[in-house]
């Protein structure tokens, strides 16, 4: 009994942290630009492909591959931002945003399959992370700890960026009142573009780090398309603590469900989503719009 609870807890935390690392980019993007970006999972998938290619074909080491993945994904997404996403910031209706981003996702899935084939691409982790780790009372995979550390580091770094830097001040100003920020001389378009790059980069980072739990394959983008959106919605768009709470909570709901009633699949995950969204339509820690 105790053992099951511990296992569930550990798995829930690591799964929740993966969810958080990927979703936080989307959350910031939705908080600032109000874009329902269903292609976020596709960007995470591109990151995974980059890392896999960098390690297996180019022989780079793991940390360097992560850098390549993040930068590569940002470079690929930049033209999409300039040509497509700029048109749907703030003003456009949900339906338009949905369709455009579903379209982008479909294209990315099709191209990923064309370039890399339909098989799962593994991202080999270095020996240091692949073994078990002795917690004193039980052994757990070291990679899980690494994932949790990545999630916490991301949260802290983002908090520092948003609350403690000049860029963060401008970003918050643009979130609170875009027109007024513009009038005060803040170039909101630059802020938007940089935020988009950060969001996509975080997605790619999470895609690489979480590849053990969410394997990289062309249907990745479609399979997890709504998962990240759901996390953001439950946490409240634009809120870091909200996204963290939502990720852990939904990670717990999903892991518990899969341990105790595996045949129900994602039933408990979405049941929790319905209850939370019904009670908190703006998310757990989101602000009213």
């Amino acid at each position: 009994m105790m053992n099951t609870v511990l296992s569930i807890g550990l798995d829930a935390v690591s799964y929740g942290m993966v969810l958080f690392t990927i979703s936080i980019g989307l959350s910031i993007m939705m908080g600032l630009m109000r874009v329902v970006n269903l292609a976020h999972g596709a960007f995470a998938m591109i990151g995974g492909y980059f890392a896999s290619y960098a390690i297996k074909q180019l022989g780079l080491n793991y940390p360097f591959a992560i850098v390549v993945a993040v930068l590569g994904t940002i470079v690929i997404s930049a033209p999409l931002e300039m040509l497509l996403y700029r048109r749907i910031y703030r003003g456009a209706g949900e339906l338009t945003q949905l369709l455009l981003t579903i379209g982008v996702t479909f294209v990315i899935i099709g191209l990923a399959n064309y370039v890399f084939g339909p098989t799962t691409k593994s991202i080999p982790v270095p020996a240091m992370l692949s073994g078990p780790f002795d917690l004193g009372f039980r052994m757990i995979p070291t990679h899980r700890l690494f994932v949790v550390a990545c999630g916490l580091t991301t949260a802290l770094a983002l908090w520092l960026l948003i609350e403690r830097t000049d860029f963060g001040v401008r970003l918050r100003a643009a979130v609170d009142n875009g027109d007024m920020a513009e009038a005060l001389g803040i170039r909101t378009q630059v802020i938007y573009s940089m935020t988009f790059a950060i969001a996509v980069g975080l997605g790619a980072f999470g895609g690489v780090v979480g590849a053990e739990l969410m394997p990289i394959e062309p249907s990745y983008a479609l399979r997890y398309m709504v998962t990240f959106l759901v996390v953001v919605s439950v946490g409240g768009a634009g809120s870091i603590p909200g996204a963290l709470a939502a990720s852990l909570l939904l990670g717990l709901a999903d892991t518990t469900g899969k341990y105790l009633a595996p045949e129900f699949g994602e039933f408990f995950f979405y049941l929790a989503v319905i209850v939370i969204v019904f009670l908190f339509p703006n998310g757990l820690l989101g602000r009213a719009q």
Partner: peptide, 8 residues
Amino acid sequence: YHWLTLVG
């Protein structure tokens, strides 16, 4: 998969 790209 080409169909998916086209639809997108």
